[in-house]
Design a protein around this nucleic acid. Structure first.
Ligand SMILES: [Mn+2]
Ligand SMILES: [Mn+2]
Ligand SMILES: [Zn+2]
Ligand SMILES: [Zn+2]
Lengths: 134, 134
DNA sequence: CGTCTCATGCAAACGATTCTCACTCTGCCG
DNA sequence: CGGCAGAGTGAGAATCGTTTGCATGAGACG
């Protein structure tokens, strides 16, 4: 019921070889550069399906854009993301999980979910930044 | 250099008497209901100025809309928000602060910021939900 | 191959937010 | 008190990421 097409393969391949969070538009651009003809709408649709299947992680950056990434760990986890280049570190955060569960229950809330992401400048982008400033 | 206008007073008053997170559009609607004539763009501008001044907290809901609230504590803190009605509990989260600081440094990131919000159904909305389901 | 569908591409539609610009009103000075 | 400079306002146009409608294309399976 889910067909394998050239376009899906291309998106899937691209994401498999990328370890930074990328927006749908960036992915579309990268595919064009690779010589893959693919419609922007198709990228959006594909990336959404993959996210729904749990094959991709999604997060919103400060501008509200959705960024996608194929993470190594498939279970629930969090991220430390470079806001300049998208470089990402996957994080486990037992303390945060505990906090979320406890606090939600304490206040009588149900179906509690949480978001917890860290954004900063990775070491490389920090260095680049400093040489620019001088 | 910052002038007090009828519109700003109205928005400020409204927020002072509301303790749920609300979108700019909701606020605009509420003001219209109160009989306050005010443009939507003005609500957006006002709410932004107030947020820049640190008078309001902002967060993005799952749909990416910005929600505003005048919090009791003016320092950095987090929230437990009802995704149905906007009811909010302010949270301190020392464990989360510690986690964010530690992890960022460990990976050589600088200028690290974090988001951490809990979304659920408040006790009241949970009850309402269950009676609907039956 | 042929058929049945799901997938694709393009353009139009969306929706929250921002911007433009002519007009209004606040805060201040004389 | 007027009078003015310039911040503030409102209506609508513009943005921009994302979604959708629809005619066309192409997997899967016999
Ligand atoms: Mn978690
Ligand atoms: Mn914090
Ligand atoms: Zn970086
Ligand atoms: Zn509620």
């Amino acid at each position: 019921m889910q067909r394998m097409t050239r376009q899906r393969a291309a998106v899937s391949d691209l994401l498999a070889g990328t370890d930074d969070f990328r927006s749908a538009q960036q992915l579309h651009e990268m595919l064009k550069d690779r010589g893959e003809g693919i419609g922007l709408a198709t990228v959006y649709r594909t990336v959404q399906v993959m996210a729904d299947n749990g094959d991709l992680d999604v997060l919103r950056n400060a501008d509200g854009e959705s960024l996608y990434r194929q993470c190594a760990s498939r279970g629930h986890h969090h991220h430390l993301v470079c806001r300049r280049c998208g470089a990402t570190v996957e994080l486990d955060a037992a303390s945060v999980e505990k906090w979320a569960a406890t606090v939600g229950a304490q206040h009588g809330f149900t179906a509690v979910e949480h978001t917890a992401e860290l954004f900063g400048l990775c070491a490389e982008c920090t260095a680049r930044q400093q040489s620019e400033d001088s």
